[in-house]
């Protein structure tokens, strides 16, 4: 009986170790397809947040109010969007998504962020020295922003053994640079129940 067990165990172990060999498999999928692997923040979350924020931002009266008062589209600058979550989240993806959709809506102008501006200014200085007078762009002609978009991502993680609930809350605020008024607050919440496997191969 013992012999049989040892024999079976050795053969099974050998078979399993051989079965572990396998190559990398790559499959292209649609960028809108939802694939949740670890339960962490992923492209679907980023897309859902940006879509919700964009539709909410454009539906609120702050854009129309600004146009009515000044006759111009509001110019917005992206400030700091802090990641205060439990994960290393690239906030640029959904901020860029928002920026693109808001600009493409034709109702809002975005001005370059502080980091982007420096590169543009360096180029302008270079133009001042090297470009022809007809094509040179002068300093001091930048469009000043009317509003700053700021925000943060917060999470609450509740974990018990192999189970956890991840709660994400994304808050974005549009603040008037003229008088510090908050003209729009967008909020998106995502809650996930994640159950990790007890066994693996």
């Amino acid at each position: 009986m013992t012999k049989q067990w040892i024999q079976t165990g050795v053969v099974a172990l050998f078979a399993l170790s051989m079965a572990a060999c396998g190559g990398t498999k790559v499959q292209r999928i649609d960028t809108n397809e939802t694939v949740d692997l670890s339960g962490a923040w992923n492209d679907t979350d980023s897309r859902l947040v940006s879509e919700e924020m964009i539709s909410d931002a454009l539906a609120r009266p702050w854009v129309a109010d600004h146009v009515r008062k000044t006759g111009d589209r509001p110019a917005v600058i992206v400030g700091t969007v802090r990641n205060l979550s439990h994960e290393h989240i690239n906030v640029n993806t959904f901020v860029n998504d928002m920026e693109r959709s808001l600009i493409n809506s034709g109702r809002v102008d975005f001005v370059a962020s502080a980091q982007e501006r420096q590169e543009i200014r360096d180029e302008r200085v270079d133009q001042d020295l090297n470009a022809s007078a007809a094509t040179r762009n002068e300093a001091g002609q930048e469009l000043g922003a009317d509003y700053m978009l700021k925000g943060e991502i917060n999470t609450i993680v509740d974990r018990e053994g192999k189970q956890q609930v991840r709660y994400y809350q994304v808050d974005l605020t549009m603040i008037s640079l003229a008088d510090n008024r908050k003209v729009w607050i967008g909020q998106k919440k995502i809650k996930k129940y994640v159950k990790n496997a007890n066994l693996r191969f």
């Binding site: 040892i6 099974a12 172990l13 399993l16 170790s17 670890s38 192999k162 066994l199 693996r200 191969f201």
Partner: peptide, 18 residues
């Protein structure tokens, strides 16, 4: 490390027998 927190069938068999 996170992915290894689940118990492995093959590793346990290997650890027990070898």
């Amino acid at each position: 490390i996170e992915s290894l927190q689940a118990a492995s069938v093959t590793e346990n068999v290997g650890a027990a027998t070898v």
